[in-house]
Simulated scan of single mutants.
Amino acid sequence: MQKQWAMSLILTAVFLGSSVMPLRAGELGDTIQQQQDLKQEQSQIQGKLNQLTFSEDKLKAQIQDLSKQITTAQTTLSLTQASYNKAQTDVMNSQRDLDERIKELEARREVLKKRVRGIYEEGQLSYLEILFQSTDLGDFISRLEYFSKLVGNDQQILAEIKTQKDQVEQKTKELQARRDQASQLQTQAAKAKADLDGKNQQYQAALAQNKKAQDDLSEQNARLAADSNAIAEKIRKLTAASAGKVLGTISTYPLPGYYEISDPYGWRIHPITQQKSMHTGTDIPAPGGTAILAAGSGVVIMAGLYGAYGNAVIIDHGGGYTSLYGHQSRIGVSVGDKVKAGEVIGYVGSTGWSTGDHLHFEVRVNGNPTDPLQFFH
């Protein structure tokens, strides 16, 4: 009976062990897939944010250029307004001068008409009056000559006034033409400024809409980041179960022969987003297609497209240690594969958020990033 009971206990333990481990592995895989999906969504959102940022910069540049044009248009409008005002004043002054010349001409004409009419009406009597009023023949001739000169002087003054009137009239026409031209220029300048103001309003509205879209995406990205952190915590708990079963230590450099570091672990200005951010790994440049080696023995828990990392592989080394190999051109392993330190797991590329062929190499302890180069001193 004791043997049977012991055998039953062993079989139960084997049964439970065989059922729990796949469940844990399946749950870990599903959780990693969820994180992968979130990373992909975050990558897409970040791409949209980058496009919006580019559009924002472009709109700001256009608005700045429009502001300069509006300032120039306002100056032009002010100048044309001043030019029109002066032309209008000149026209009014010239018109007033013309009216005075016309009045003066009419007055002189009226005086001459009266004088000529008197001569015609009185006929020889006028001459007789001049004769009788004269003291002698010389006085008569002098009076007659004076009378003739008086009439001739009136005619000369009349001609001069008419000439002045014609000149002022011509000047008035020229000033009116200049005023009309100034008015036309003023209208054009006002329309140009109105058009620029309209464009500026459109750009400002587009900028406000762009900003709102950025805020919405940033909020969405923040929610995704929170979800991603929650999933990362879940992954840490799931991988913590193997803390007492260390599969291998991290001791093998992933790219032998390529020791130049283009971007070390730590805070930096991101080469694509231009934002200050934490660089959670180390970038090692190498020709595309160079073999990538596993930094230690372990189990592949992720192999595929991983958001900004592009084609990536994550290896669980046990004890809470994981290593990540990003931007691969081609992946050489699958999820669930057991690998040994120094085994080829993929090839250098430039997939995901990358500006050239290189390996992005990460090491995390209980999900927290750490400087990966410390393991190779």
Rank of each mutant, 00 (worst) to 15 (best):
G118C: 02
I45R: 01
Y347P: 02
K212Y: 13
V14M: 15
I231A: 01
Q64W: 14
S218T: 15
Y321P: 03
Y325F: 01
G289R: 04
A208L: 04
Q36D: 04
Q275R: 12
E56R: 14
Q202K: 03
S228A: 15
L16T: 09
Y253Q: 01
L28M: 04
K165T: 08
Y146W: 09
I70V: 14
K68P: 07
L125Q: 14
S148H: 11
E260Q: 02
Q4L: 13
G367D: 11
Q374P: 00
G304W: 07
K171H: 06
G281K: 01
Y127V: 15
F147Y: 10
D136M: 11
Q214W: 04
F376Y: 15
I314S: 08
E174P: 04
V151W: 02
N368P: 01
I63H: 07
L105E: 11
M7A: 09
A241Q: 13
M302Y: 11
E56W: 12
Q156W: 02
K86G: 08
A225W: 10
G26D: 07
K237G: 15
T322K: 08
L112Q: 09
D215N: 10
N210E: 12
R117H: 07
V14W: 12
L144A: 14
H317M: 06
K276E: 11
Q275W: 05
N85H: 12
F361V: 11
N200G: 00
V246K: 08
G289C: 07
Q133G: 15
Q51H: 12
N200R: 06
I331A: 06
I102N: 01
I315S: 04
K173V: 10
A189F: 00
D30C: 00
T12M: 13
K39V: 06
A182F: 02
